[in-house]
Amino acid sequence: MTAAIDVDARSLRRIARNHRLNRWDVRFSPYLYISPFFILFALVGLFPLLYTAWVSVHDWNLIGGQGDFVGIDNYVTVLSQPYFWTSLRNTFSIFLFSSVPQVLLAMGIAAFLDYNLRAKTLWRMGVLLPYVVAPVAVALIFSNLFGDRFGLINELLGGIGIDAIRWHVDVIPSHLAIATMVNFRWTGYTTLIFLAAMQAIPRDYYEAAIIDGANRLRTFWSITVPLLRPVIIFVIITSTIGGLQIFDEPRMFDQAGQGGANRQWQTLTLYIYELGWGQRNFGRASAVAWLLFLVIIVIAILNFVITRRIAGSTERRIRTKGKR
């Protein structure tokens, strides 16, 4: 009797243990599987981030290394530098000139590629081609277009009697030129992301809408755009992060690479480079890097909230229509 009870108790314990293991397996395994990313991120993302914060509160020379602890002095100094604010302005301006048209254009191109075109793959590969070109090469090609005196665009403008645009002198033209390079490179990439998302939309929706008498434009606005919501949010956030960190194009825009004599097109990343490697002041460069990080976080959150609200409202409209 007692033996039987013993056996029962043992097997019960075993079953309980197996249950527990199973539960742990279910509960913790997913975390284990994704942990390589986070371990890698901690090493190459989080550590540099925190180390930069550590550097930013010290006097720190590129060669001389760590100096005295100075607290928030570096932050106070860079915030009082006019070039910091100029480069913040430029960063936003170039970001807006590049990201906004880029997202709109990419969505339009993707919508066309989503139709039944002849030689589909050719067109789809075609839009990605500029992405393969290295940014420095893009800058070299475009510098031929945007030369102040002997550039192609100014020669054409001169041909029809318009004054030459001073691409490397005036603020807005220089931003437009840089944004053009960025867009040239990234529009195709964004297009393909949109295209992939559009192809995941069930065709039934379109058929139903067309039977109901909706035209192409109407189906685009009322079906495609609302259903792309998560992808739009993703693209806008990634292009914000990328757009606020533009470096190669403005750096290659002229021979000095500092963003112009009056910092007409100096972005925050260029400013970091100037402080860190030009003046060799790593403390201040790190302070700017952290400020840029904070700016990006704030903008990303803003973006998220705004795009959610906009996309959300259209979705609600569809739902209410559906209920009716």
Partner: peptide, 15 residues
């Protein structure tokens, strides 16, 4: 009024 080493500067040798 060219800045040295700029593309315009290089091109001006031919012009």
């Amino acid at each position: 009024h060219l800045s040295q080493w700029s593309d315009d500067w290089t091109a001006s040798f031919q012009n």
